[in-house]
Design a protein around this nucleic acid. Structure first.
Lengths: 225, 225
DNA sequence: ATAATTATGTGATTCAGATCACAAATATAC
DNA sequence: GTATATTTGTGATCTGAATCACATAATTAT
């Protein structure tokens, strides 16, 4: 029973540095839960008491802005989830919601802290990952504030194709409205631009199914905004 | 001579956890440099080979976006500077420039890494600070994408008054154009809105001198956008 | 000092994208 | 299966902010 985590095939770069002892320790203080598409995993404004590890699935980080909801980022497994909101403050500053069926391991926060105190390799890797996350956050923020909506939308379609699904044909895990929250645009603008992309033969859409037909053009739109 | 860092009065929360040995170690692998307003401290696109600690002064982090420069954040001493770009990738993903006379200690990256490996308290504190930074980055990003320019500008004037200068009367360390890069607006829009604020008796401006006359109203504008 | 830059203020015009207003299509509930 | 609610598409209008176009300060260089 203490072997669960040790034998788990879904380790992140950091958790690969955990020792056998630490992993069996973790097995004892860890709960695995399944979430369905749309289920809330972490809720903004509530106390953060566990470390969440995304074992399988796809989730979005989102937060309430001054005017409306914003989707901050999309994270796929395997990955620790929302460490900044777990350790940065007592209260969660953003929410995490499954956008595809997902499996989360909730790890006791003190067990996790003991890893940080005792396993320098683990901690260093965690540190590096936080640093890399910040770099991509900064980049994402510049892009979303400076590109126009069509550019941002193109960028995100490419992100789903290249980084999430590894295919130019996929089913969007988000509604038009959520897509709007991801690219800082209204639901209507997203609809319109997607229609335009289709008219121009760049993509084909059938409800939430997306097929990228002209990737070069989509990349060009993403670059130039 | 090895006592320099030990006796330094400008320690960050994390560096207070360094032991005497570590501090004298740091003293030996550390160079202190002064930068004048406008001087570039870290340049986007170059190799990152040292950890920079801002001992005294005020700096801005900024990066080239797809359309123009963006000021990502303002950091005051004492604080480690740009750890994410130092450790997140070989190459700096953003620049750091002094916006007031500043003193930087450049610490050898391997010395710093040895602290991370050997001093759990130090590392944990660093970890916490990175987490908190990410939370404020997220918040800043939502605000800058959703608020209108007047709201963002109000927010940033309040930030300078409350967090940087601790006074409702201060000299802006930025030009109108830089202020634009901070709030994602054109130089002209910043000028106009500042004029409006003055007409409405919310602030008084004399070149870059700012006096906040009606803080409640400024806070209201910041909240509502 | 005088000339040459660079920073700033303000009006006029333009435009991307929001909002409003529907209609149509799906999905969910009863 | 019918009714109710949610999601989506598309046109018409409105608006905040960019851009363009100057004039005027304020620096910096010579």
């Amino acid at each position: 029973m203490d072997e669960v985590c040790k034998n788990c095939g879904y380790k992140s770069a950091a958790s690969r540095y955990l020792t056998e002892d630490e992993l069996s320790n973790q097995s004892r203080s860890c709960v695995e839960l399944k979430f369905r598409k749309g289920d809330n995993i972490i809720r903004q404004g509530t106390l953060s008491s566990n470390v969440a590890f995304l074992k399988e699935g796809l989730v979005m980080l989102h937060m309430q802005g001054p005017l409306h909801e914003q989707i901050t980022k999309i994270t796929k497994a395997p990955s620790y989830l929302a460490l900044p909101t777990t350790f940065g403050d007592k209260i969660n500053h953003y929410s995490v919601t499954a956008i595809e069926e997902s499996t989360i391991c909730f790890i006791d926060i003190n067990t996790f802290k003991s890893f940080i105190s005792n396993n320098p390799n683990f901690t260093y890797q965690l540190f590096i990952e936080l640093c890399m996350n910040e770099l991509t956050s900064f980049r994402r923020c510049v892009n979303r504030t400076q590109k126009q909506v069509s550019g941002s939308l193109a960028e995100n379609l490419l992100f789903f194709a290249n980084n999430i699904y590894g295919s130019d044909e996929f089913t969007l895990p988000l509604s038009r409205e959520e897509l709007g929250n991801l690219v800082d645009a209204s639901r209507e603008s997203v609809s319109r631009i997607l229609s335009d992309f289709q008219k121009d033969g760049i993509i084909s859409t059938e409800k939430r199914m997306i097929k990228i037909l002209n990737k070069e053009k989509l990349e060009m739109i993403s670059r130039n905004g």
